[in-house]
Each structure stands twice: as C-alpha cells, then as structure tokens.
Nucleic acid binder design. Structure first.
Length: 220
DNA sequence: GACCAGGCACATC
DNA sequence: GATGTGCATGGT
C-alpha cells in the first residue's frame, strides 16, 4: 500500500472509531503516579487483573512514589499478586521509583518538565520499562505527544495489511506519527480507541462481521 | 483444562 | 539482528 494512501486510511480509521465509540477519556487512573503504576502492571496482563492490584495498593496507601519506595518488596509483591508476574513487576515498580528519586528527587512534576525525547531515553534505560510502557507513561502520565503502539495496534493494522506482519515497534510508531497531525489529544484518543475496538472485536474469538472496521474488507 | 491478556529482559545462535 | 523462553494471575 502506498504511503500517502496509508496516511489517509489511518486518519479514516480514527474518524470511524471516534464516530462509533466517542471519546474514551484515557488513561483510567486517578493520578499521574497511578497511571504509571498501571502502565507497568498491565504488561502482558488483562486490565481487570490490574484493577485488583491497584485497588489493593490504594487500600494500603502505597500509591505515591515515596510510600512505594519505602514499602518492602514482600509487601508490594503480595499486594500486586492479582496482576500476575508479581515478582518481576515488584522489581520494575521499585526500579521506576528509585529512578524517580535518583534523577528527579521523587518529583513527577520535575520529570514532567523535561523534553520528551530526553525523558524517553531515561525511561527506556530503567530495567523493566520497554518501548510501550515508556510511551504510555509519556503520553498518558506526562501528556507528551508520543504515539503508543501495542499488541492490538500490531494485530489490527497488520491484519488489514496496513503494516507488515513483522514490522517493528519503531516502524509502526513512525507511520502513525508521520501520518497524523501531531498532538497529545489525538494520539491519546486514537490509541484508546484501538484498544477498545481490539477488546470488542479482535480477541481470540474474532467477530469481524460486526466490527466498525469491517468496511475495510481486507482480512489476513 | 486449554488459551489468552494493553511486555520485557535475557540467553543463545 | 533474529528467535526462544521465563515470568503468573484470573477470565472465557
């Protein structure tokens, strides 16, 4: 598919999804820190499980950088157990708060003031924060105009022959960011809409017949 | 009782 | 650079 055509299709898909679902108001999190915690906990995990873990952290009053930094790993692991991979994720949460304190004195506001490309490099250097988690944090916690590519994005857009099946994270992200008018609001809504339509129609039991993207008529 | 979910690091070739 | 594997719970 030609690049200019891809750009048109990407814009059209957003228009259709927005028309179908309306604004999503992402990320589902009460505070900036809660958004970051959710981004780490949802790695390869259903969001319903993440909600249980976040509720437990809230009850334990650990949803702040300092409280989480001071919490023991055994306490933390027990609380986030429902989110799965609790041992690795405990380390990853600790790695993030340690980074935040070492680099920004524990202040998300200070981190937020950094240029997004610098912050992106720093976050990617934290063990346990890969491209998607990093960009989710930048977009949804820090409101930086960075497009998030996730499993649904790869699945949906490769099935519709808009990206190659083996395309890398960077390639897909570049396509979206080159095609769309830059802006945090648009990137935010578009990614949220992709996840919404993915959950509704593109899971194991695909229901393409009722999908709002069915008009594309190109499958597999 | 399989199979899957809003990844990532690490080992190995 | 590409490919394979461990990490773990809860819903369908």
């Amino acid at each position: 598919m030609r690049k200019t055509l891809k750009s048109k299709v990407l814009k059209d898909i957003h228009k259709r999804l927005y028309g179908y679902y309306g604004p999503q108001g992402w990320w589902p999190g009460r505070t900036r820190f809660e958004v970051i915690v959710g981004a780490i906990l949802t790695q390869n995990t259903a969001w319903t499980n993440v909600e249980k873990a976040i509720s437990a952290l809230r009850r334990a009053k650990l949803l702040s950088p300092i409280r989480m930094k001071e919490a023991s790993t055994t306490t933390l692991a027990a609380l986030i157990r429902p989110a799965g991979y609790f041992n690795v994720k405990t380390k990853r949460l600790k790695n993030f708060v340690n980074f935040l304190f070492e680099r920004y004195g524990g202040s998300l506001a200070k981190a937020s003031n950094r240029p997004s490309d610098i912050l992106r490099h720093e976050l990617l250097a934290v063990n346990g924060i890969g491209p998607e988690t990093c960009d989710s944090i930048l977009l949804y916690a820090f409101k930086k105009p960075v497009f998030v590519v996730d499993a649904y994005t790869k699945r949906i857009f490769s099935r519709h022959a808009i990206v190659e099946r083996g395309a890398t994270y960077q390639e897909i992200q570049k396509l979206f960011m080159d095609s769309l008018r830059p802006g945090e609001r648009l990137y935010n809504e578009y990614h949220a809409l992709i996840v919404r339509v993915g959950k509704d129609f593109c899971r194991a039991k695909a229901r393409c017949d009722r999908c709002p993207l069915n008009y594309l008529q190109i499958y597999f």
